[in-house]
Amino acid sequence: MAQKTKLIDVSKCTGCRGCQLACKQWNQQPAAQTENYGTYQNPPDLQSNTWTLIRFQEIADKDSVKWLFRKDGCMHCTDAACVKVCPSGALHYTEYGTVAINNERCIGCKECVSACPFDIPRYDRVTDKIYKCDLCLTRIQAALEPACVKACPTGALKFGDRADMLKLAYKRAAELGGNANVYGDKFVDGTHVLYVLQEKPSTYEKLPANPSVPLSIIAWKDLLKPLSLLAAGGVIAGSFLHYIIHGPKLPDEDQNHKGGE
């Protein structure tokens, strides 16, 4: 199956939040009471029932201020830290290269929350499970585009085969010129969500400039896990060999009366 990818062209985004709403609607996620903290960004952060969020940011642009809108959500990594740590197999790769979640299996251990380099999964205390965007897996399976892409009125969101999206992204970045760049193909073996950014990645809030699968997780899963099998095999084989080669340690006398049994 061809790898699917969503392209987010932030230069075309008007911050209308149609995608945010469409996501809630399709996935039947209610809105919670929100709070005003002096920005248009609403709700303040991703939530267990808000899987995509338009981040609003004001930056100085010569004498005036400029708005930056960035649609945040799961990046659908090819080398996904969350899948690596998930003990239950709830988080898994799909045939499209995206990362989906089977909530039935989730045990609420929150290991994925700590692991994700993009700080995406959100824990819900009531169900004791985590939630995140699955790139509308059931829609992709039905040959539809994700709900957010469908809703976007400006063409900021596109969805298609990975190769096509990459081409489109580079073309658009070249068109924009200046600082414009493509974000998402250079780390974690490439993500299945790509950005065309107008500014350098470091300009955007909560967007890691150089994300990677954390070193600790590589040490834990790729080193200690195989080592534990090796160690277990070693001590079991070692004890057995000791028994048959050297033999048990026996008292010098009184061997026929062990007693106490």
């Binding site: 340690k249 008292p251 006398e253 061997q255 062990k258």
Partner: peptide
């Protein structure tokens, strides 16, 4: 049981 033989103690 907590009770051991003298021979075992001598060895161990």
């Amino acid at each position: 049981s907590g009770w051991v033989t003298r021979a075992w103690l001598k060895k161990q």
